[in-house]
């Protein structure tokens, strides 16, 4: 699921006015604040901070799943090593690079499609018409369905022999013979993207809809009086105004897409033509029991996502500044 933590800047606290901030009350409150934070911080350290550090550490060792305590420090060998005239390690594995390319391709294509469709759906839901509440409820359904279930549902609909999609496409004369959507390497990535777009467009649509509903009404009235074409109004007025909300939706969708695992795992399992970085890392870690090598892949995934986030925030800020000039 998308993590809907969505705020561009940290929330400012709402302190009491100065008159109440006598030192005693204040000191008591600060002490209480840390006391109240402690359980959360301890939990997050245990499930996030410490395991992350251990993953980094394992990536420099030969740890295996059956024996994670007796490990040997092997430096960068899991990443890249030259041995006997050949390169070894994650960085020398063509399947890893395939997984990187698949993940990036999947993320860029599906997030772009979700933004386009999300904006269209949000514009429709923002219009006033009879039955709007019902349509909004219908749009929420894909979002409410667990990813695994939606992957299974689509796997069945995309079934090459008995699937309803092939049946409809053949009935409409679009295709002549059934397509093996999830097995055929030239279609499987598109099948995965389609399922992801279907499932997560509602999330983007809801964020955009919330932004649309806060837009000032008067500039639209002015545009209507001046007889400006609605399409022009959309690109000149609406789109710039909802860009901040879109940026938030895009970054959260992008971070989610870069770590994609479950849709691909269920639809096409470990096939190389759709393998994502998460699938690659987990396969090494759990199925091949190679914790060291798998951790190296995980660490690289972490670094790629961290870099993507930093680049996005940097570029986004630049663009916003340019837009503001």
């Amino acid at each position: 699921m998308s993590t809907p933590v969505t705020e561009s800047a940290p929330i400012p606290a709402r302190p009491l006015p100065t008159s109440y901030r006598s030192t005693k009350v204040r000191r008591q409150r600060v002490r209480a604040a840390w006391l109240f934070l402690a359980p959360m911080l301890v939990t997050l350290t245990m499930v996030a901070g410490w395991p992350l550090l251990r993953t980094f550490y394992f990536s420099f060792t030969d740890a295996s799943l059956s024996d994670m305590s007796n490990t040997l420090f092997i430096g960068l060998e899991n990443y890249l090593v030259y041995d006997d005239g050949r390169w070894f390690g994650v960085l020398a594995d063509p399947i890893w690079w395939r997984a990187v390319w698949n993940t990036v391709y999947f993320s860029v294509v599906s997030v772009s499609l979700e933004v386009v469709f999300g904006v269209i759906v949000a514009l429709v839901l923002n219009a006033e018409f009879k039955g709007r509440t019902l349509v909004r409820a219908a749009v929420l359904i894909p979002w409410a369905i667990p990813t695994i279930v939606s992957a299974q549902m689509w796997a069945w609909m995309l079934n090459d022999q008995f699937g309803v999609i092939n049946y409809l496409l053949m009935a409409l004369g679009i295709i002549a013979s059934p397509i093996a959507w999830t097995a055929d390497a030239s279609y499987s990535m598109w099948a995965v993207i389609m399922v992801d777009v279907w499932k997560t467009t509602p999330f983007v649509a809801l964020l955009v809809l919330a932004a649309l509903q806060m837009l000032p009404k008067d500039c639209y009235e002015a545009a209507e009086v001046d007889g400006i074409h609605p399409v022009k109004v959309f690109f000149r007025v609406t789109l710039p105004l909802i860009t901040p909300a879109l940026m938030v939706a895009v970054i959260f969708r992008l971070l989610d897409a870069l770590r994609v695992f479950d849709v691909i795992y269920v639809l096409t399992s470990n096939s190389t033509s759709t393998m994502s970085m998460s699938i690659y890392a987990r396969q090494q870690l759990v199925e091949f029991q190679d914790v060291g090598y798998g951790s190296a892949a995980s660490t690289l995934l972490f670094l790629i996502i961290a870099l993507a986030t930093i680049a996005y925030l940097y570029l986004g800020r630049k663009q916003l500044q340019l837009g503001g000039d």
Binding site: T3, V5, P10, L44, M46, V47, A48, G49, W50, P51, L52, L53, R54, T55, F58, A63, L65, M68, L255, L258, R259, F261, M277, S278, A281, R282, L285, V291, G294, S295, S298, T299, L301, F302, I305, A306, T309
Partner: peptide
Amino acid sequence: LGVSMFPQVAVLSGLFEV
């Protein structure tokens, strides 16, 4: 915010140990 962003796979081996 950082914790909510990073990939689950990145903690998989460490969390397995914990």
